[in-house]
Design a protein around this nucleic acid. Sequence first.
DNA 1: GTAAAAGTTCAAGTGAGCTTGAAGTAAAGG
DNA 2: CCTTTACTTCAAGCTCACTTGAACTTTTAC
Lengths: 155, 155
Amino acid sequence: MQALRPPAAMLTINQVSRRSGVASSALRYYEERKLIVSERAGSGHRRFHRSVLRRVAFIVFAQRVGLSLDEIGEELAKLPTDHVPGGADWSRLSESWQRRIDARIAELERLKQGLSSCISCGCLSLESCRMTNPADRASRLGPGPRYWVGQAGGR
Amino acid sequence: MQALRPPAAMLTINQVSRRSGVASSALRYYEERKLIVSERAGSGHRRFHRSVLRRVAFIVFAQRVGLSLDEIGEELAKLPTDHVPGGADWSRLSESWQRRIDARIAELERLKQGLSSCISCGCLSLESCRMTNPADRASRLGPGPRYWVGQAGGR
DNA sequence: GTAAAAGTTCAAGTGAGCTTGAAGTAAAGG
DNA sequence: CCTTTACTTCAAGCTCACTTGAACTTTTAC
């Protein structure tokens, strides 16, 4: 029944870590990257507002979708700063990646298709094959050969 | 009209690179990782069989789908070695990742859903939310916080 | 015949996203 | 009070998938 030590509704880094499942080292890293913020107790210890949990959740989701931390930062920057973002703010934010997700899904569908048709028939000797990059430079999925799949198709 | 220098139908590393769009440094790396093989000309220069183009195509596709080079190696190991793999061999191989792709698509659909419902409502304070890892440890998409999305949800 | 282009190996570097370790301070529990 | 446990910073390390550079040999083109 008693309030926890942190100033009423403020969370320590470990509390955030346990509740979000994100390691505290990662949280410090996110703070360094300006994706989340903390206040400091007199001692220098971090104190997170509850609302950081939602931000962290967003970060995790967005990564899962395939956004880089830089991109996530840009998204998060769109949130209002004059008040703690509410459901509506978050909804607005997430609309933009619905498109992202749809694009990625579309790519996967294409791969699924091209997979059997393209690879098995052997047409993948490049330039002929239309699998090789329909200009979706947006969707990133880690390294991978740079230009077949990445960019140079669009020379 | 004349055959190219390499022993008839054998390709140099740069020919493979140009035809596949994969950098020659990457091709050397793939060879080192045993994903592709080459013979050597007396000089020590690599000579690739045409069929390596299909393998490289497969590698590129598979990466796009989200497989790591290790996983791709395992897949490639399933190809017959007693003959140059033909369309049927490749088709058989690709069946396994149809599932993979479907799983990933499903995850994206879930994310798309959970995105609005879950994040905007704020339920993502973890443990309650069913977004947080429906046990698909398989789908990898780069680093990201290890256990919320990765593993620890499952204890 | 010679210069440029293409090939080789090996070691080290890159970028993203963290993790780990060292060395020290602060807070919580008995 | 004293011992854990929690927290801090900073620097270095790690994985993945390559790339880059150095130093050198081979092939090709004129």
